[in-house]
């Protein structure tokens, strides 16, 4: 990995052209407006996470940024281009692992190669150069041993790395990940977020969504609290306050700080059938 030093608290370089820029964007579905007049800049080199409750519009926001869903109004630009016309290879995307068909007959190598499928080569089989790139990247991400394995025969961490490799193989400037920490154990979460930090230190902008506030607090330098609009954004230590998180999630959020670490929990007591009112 490159040793280019980017402080883990660096919110990106506001002086550069934004990697993602939303201006006055309204979006949603028929009969359901998810957010209105949203403006957001993700600067080049930023490592940012979007947190918020289920159904708050995180996935819709990602779809708008990725250009797979049109906005009702407003302007969406990715690396200076309109989101709907992004040049292939400019943006890498890692879907939620829960949406992947694990019975599909593909190996880890074939999954990674898909990231090069818009490079212009027509023939089905990979070129020597493509194979070399896959091998090199697999070595960097520590999945070279399972390149020939069927995807279902890999661990949660290997799967996440395989899909991350697919996103990185075309040398994108922005990588978008939809809940990369869901469905994996706490050790794998830690490894994945560290890996993303390393990738970010090479200058690649990272934008992800997650439900795991504690992992975000300890790994991400910039957080956007989202609930049908931006509630707050900033460094976790600045915006992970009971007030902001309660406004984001509702309920009664408790934050315990200990030696620079956070523990965030919902303090709303569980009520069971038969409990006294």
């Amino acid at each position: 990995m490159s040793t280019r030093a980017i402080s883990r608290l660096d919110p990106g370089d506001p002086g550069t052209k934004p990697a993602v820029s939303l201006t006055g964007v309204s979006a949603g579905y028929e009969h359901n407006v998810v957010f209105t007049r949203l403006s957001l800049d993700i600067h080049a080199g930023q490592f940012a996470g979007i947190v918020g409750p289920t159904g708050c519009g995180k996935t819709t926001l990602l779809k708008i940024i990725l250009g797979t869903m049109p906005a009702f109004s407003g302007e969406v630009r990715v690396a200076g281009q309109a989101a709907a016309t992004i040049r292939p290879g400019l943006v890498g995307y890692v879907p939620q692992l829960g949406s992947v068909d694990w019975s599909f007959p593909v190996t880890v190598e074939e999954v990674i190669l898909m990231g090069l499928y818009t490079s212009g080569r027509v023939w089905p089989w990979p070129s020597r150069e493509e194979r070399r790139r896959v091998r090199d990247l697999a070595h960097r991400l520590g999945i070279h041993d399972c390149l020939r394995h069927h995807i279902v025969h890999t661990s949660g961490g290997q799967r996440q790395r395989a899909f991350l490799a697919r996103a990185l193989i075309s040398n994108p400037r922005l990588v978008v990940l939809d809940e990369p920490t869901s469905g994996v154990d706490i050790k794998t979460q830690h490894e994945v977020l560290h890996l993303l930090g390393d990738i970010n230190s090479e200058g690649i902008t990272i934008l992800l969504t997650t439900h795991d506030l504690n992992a975000v607090a300890s790994h991400l330098p910039w957080v956007i609290c989202f609930n049908n609009g931006i509630v707050a954004q900033g460094r976790p230590q600045d915006i992970f306050t009971a007030d902001i998180l309660t406004r984001t999630y509702g309920g009664d959020i408790v934050i315990v700080r200990h030696e620079g670490h956070f523990l965030i929990a919902n303090n709303t007591p569980l009520r069971f059938k038969g409990d006294a009112q």
Partner: peptide, 23 residues
């Protein structure tokens, strides 16, 4: 199938991601 092998495979496996990647 030979000429469209790559876009067909990608869109069959993961249609949304294929779209993001420019297919």
């Amino acid at each position: 199938v030979i000429l469209l092998y790559r876009p067909l495979l990608f869109s069959t496996f993961d249609n949304e991601a294929a779209r993001v990647f420019g297919i």
